[in-house]
Computed example of a mutant assay.
Amino acid sequence: MENVKGCYYCDQDEGFRSLLFKICDLKASSVFLCKDQTLPGRCTIMFRDHYNELYEIPKEERDAFMDDVCALAQTIKELFGADKINYAIYGDEVTHVHFTLCPKYKGRLGWGGPFVLFPQEQDKITLTDDLYRERMEQIGAAVMEKRGIRP
């Protein structure tokens, strides 16, 4: 399957790279740290090829992708002490199959309901470059180990 020109996830243009920082490639996907770290550990994971719907992905590849998703969710929960992981796969305007994995914490933003995809500017937490790098290295090493991938 080819990448699709004009697709946010296929193109990964400057706007994309200002909001999502690539952590690593897994067996069927790429993992990105979301710039908004209001809920620590929030990541996006995209299928390596362009498909609009999960059911379009051949079963063997879809199973590998879901194994990647599960490994990332477990990694986030373990590293950041999340009480629950929410999985978002909307894609109305960005059709490339991807999940936003949002760790949820009791008593914090969005607990008891769907996570806030775009929190108010005053609520957003961003990190220093060093803290982003540290968080990305931490997540990357742990999730790659879970998937049996050597860096």
Rank of each mutant, 00 (worst) to 15 (best):
Y55V: 12
Y55I: 09
E60Y: 08
E60A: 07
F65T: 10
M66N: 08
D67K: 14
D68H: 02
A71E: 06
L72Y: 02
A73L: 07
A73C: 07
T75K: 08
I76K: 02
K77G: 08
K77M: 10
E78S: 14
E78F: 02
E78V: 04
L79M: 07
L79A: 04
F80R: 06
F80I: 03
G81H: 04
G81Y: 07
G81T: 01
A82E: 01
D83F: 03
D83E: 03
K84A: 11
K84R: 07
I85T: 06
N86V: 09
I89N: 13
E93V: 13
E93T: 14
V94D: 09
V97S: 03
V97Y: 12
H98D: 06
H98L: 09
F99E: 04
T100D: 04
K106M: 11
G107L: 09
G107K: 13
R108H: 13
R108D: 12
L109S: 11
L109P: 11
G110D: 05
G110F: 10
W111Y: 13
G113D: 13
P114S: 15
P114Y: 15
P114C: 13
V116K: 09
V116Q: 12
V116M: 05
L117Y: 04
L117G: 08
L117H: 00
P119C: 08
P119H: 03
P119K: 09
